[in-house]
Design a protein around this nucleic acid. Structure first.
Lengths: 363, 363
DNA sequence: TTGAAAGCGCTAACAT
DNA sequence: ATGTTAGCGCTTTCAA
């Protein structure tokens, strides 16, 4: 089968412009423009006729021309660590649902962790063309200067999930403290006292909060915090070896932990995989609860206890806020911080260690 | 903390234009343009000076203006059923990796199955602005007329995963026949003869091919095809009740199946979940192998046998092809169909029923 | 209430 | 090899 001749030479049909409508109705282009933009300085009659003609002729505005004219692109940039993760997938979904309905396009860039150069390149590439930015800050990168510069220049920015206070942007986050606190409390209430925490870094906002939640729960339960029970995997689980090493160290402790709280989707999955490979029985040998948005949590055997973040909602909220910002609709004199509550699902990977009350020394 | 005054009124710094460079160097804008586009009708000296000045002044081309001028938007549309699925996530990832590096933006639209109206709306919304389209065809929608119209008008289109022959587009697909055939063969070789197949519809290309693979494997093994073992879930697993009903029917057969081949990511997950809920032991009560790209397959208990499709690669190939098409780089006189091979992972959800040879009647 | 005209930033004839 | 000019489709003064 051969392609029609015109296929090769970009022979796309010239689309209907504002001029065509003007000519068709015998009025000027500016009137058409006014009618279409629902201006108040246009007669009702003409407005109706223009709208009809537009529909009839199949007019679609050329967003490029509109953008060029008024300095807007009707697109927003999204920077996430990776799209290959159920949580961020849900976030994208949420963002998409609002940007789509509001007529904005999405330009997605992945920072893949902490490759600052790449992030910068992406910024270079896309930035003259976006009206606003949604960003989950890459990593412990101390260099927020480029971002700050953009913000100072007036680019509307909303941070979500991994945020920073060093730039005065609006924020949409999960209540990470609450999630980690409650999860740890669940473990404690189930009778565990030797609880390890595998996280990525103290320097990422959400991880720091989770660490705090973990520590607070222990403190309030009068369980001493054992720093060797806290492991940092800077590669965030992208390097399984790093996690393996952390686990090995934990199990090599003179008193090894009985339960683990994992701090991110990726780490949770990797830990689960490693525990399987190392033949640890969950929850008999080691209990596990982790931050994760996987849909498979309840299908795992044993089913996995998770802290589930409202990814879709987070994306929605962040996008709505951003678009309001772009449109200057709401006047934001204050930096807002929206905090969404995660859900805790206690499943079989955490098991009540002993029936009845928690140990006496815990009361 | 209050926002700087300028924040509210879109006071973004005017960016450096081609004119600024021209003025800075005392030459004309067109020379600058030529230098930047690496035209051959420009002196080496000026070219170098322009490039230097551009770097120094921080020039970034205004893609809107470029697009308006030459009728290109440097963006490609992607239509997928849903992004909330590991396979399509990987596809997006693959697409993104090439479009990004080639300077194209992505406009992603989800068709969410078969809601034709929505698809059409999305098309209306985005289409004047895309240079090409990557699409995994929504559903059994017989109405490909809009798509065909676009194609006829010269819009470069590449179909992937779920394709159609009714429009002469290039295609990038997985070898669905092979995947289903091999998976079924695995079951047969493991000693199963009563094998059910849960799919979505005969009218979707990839599903039809999988069904054929399944049937061929049975045929070649001289196992009679039992049509009541083949269940269609038109909602593709989005409605668990439908799948539940299918399963109930299967198990109510006078001779119920011993193994199931599931035809899509979503269906596989739902079936797995239902089997758990219904307390069927895998693989003792029922063996399972399914199309799935989940990363959790090996972490499940029992680990899940899967047919894994090369999603990332599929996205890459489709995007490369599309951009070549857009650029008119390669001259495609023939419709191409690229077929990628899926991987089969036989894990614990399929177990050799009896040691030694398959039953005598199968040889 | 409407039209004419200018211009957003860039490119591509056409001229020199 | 370079400059001049016009125009992509749209919006928005400014005049009428």
């Amino acid at each position: 089968m051969s392609i029609p001749e015109k296929g090769s030479r970009q022979f796309r049909e010239k689309s209907v412009t504002i001029k065509d409508i003007a000519q068709y109705l015998g009025i000027s282009a500016s009137s058409v423009s006014r009618a279409l933009s629902d201006s108040f300085e246009i007669a009702q009659g003409t407005k109706v006729r223009v709208l009809e003609a537009a529909g009839y002729l199949g007019y679609k505005p050329n967003t490029l021309a509109q953008g060029l004219k008024n300095g807007k692109s009707r697109s927003v940039g999204v920077i996430i660590p990776t799209i290959d993760n159920p949580f961020f997938c849900q976030v994208i979904n949420g963002i998409d649902s609002v940007t789509n309905s509001r007529g904005y396009h999405l330009i997605i860039a992945q920072s893949h962790g902490f490759d600052e150069l790449e992030v910068l390149n992406l910024k270079q590439l896309t930035f003259p063309a976006i009206d606003g930015l949604l960003i989950s800050i890459a990593a412990e990168s101390d260099d927020l200067s480029y971002l700050k510069e953009l913000h100072d220049k007036g680019l509307p920015i909303v941070c979500f999930d991994r945020v920073t206070d060093r730039i005065g942007t609006h924020q949409v986050v999960a209540d990470n403290y609450y999630g980690a606190y409650e999860a740890t409390m669940c473990l404690i209430k189930a009778g565990y006292t030797k609880i390890a925490h595998i996280t990525t870094s103290k320097n990422v906002s959400n991880m720091a909060e989770r660490l705090q939640g973990y520590e607070s729960a222990l403190n309030e339960s009068h369980i001493e915090i054992n720093t060797s029970y806290i492991k940092y995997c800077k590669r965030e689980g992208k390097d399984p070896e790093e996690v393996k090493h952390a686990l090995k160290e934990l199990f090599a402790e003179s008193v090894p932990p009985e339960a683990i709280l994992t701090a991110s989707d990726t780490i949770t999955t990797v830990v689960l995989r490693l525990l399987h490979h190392l033949q640890y029985a969950i929850p008999q040998d080691i209990a596990l609860i982790g931050f994760s948005n996987t849909e498979m949590a309840d299908v795992l055997a044993p089913s996995l206890s998770t802290i589930y973040q409202p990814g879709f909602e987070m994306g929605e909220k962040a996008a709505e806020l951003l678009i309001d910002l772009i449109k200057g609709k709401a006047v934001f004199r204050e930096i807002s911080k929206m905090v969404l509550r995660p859900q805790i699902f206690v499943r079989d990977s955490v098991q009540r260690k002993q029936s009845g009350n928690p140990p006496a020394d815990m009361r």
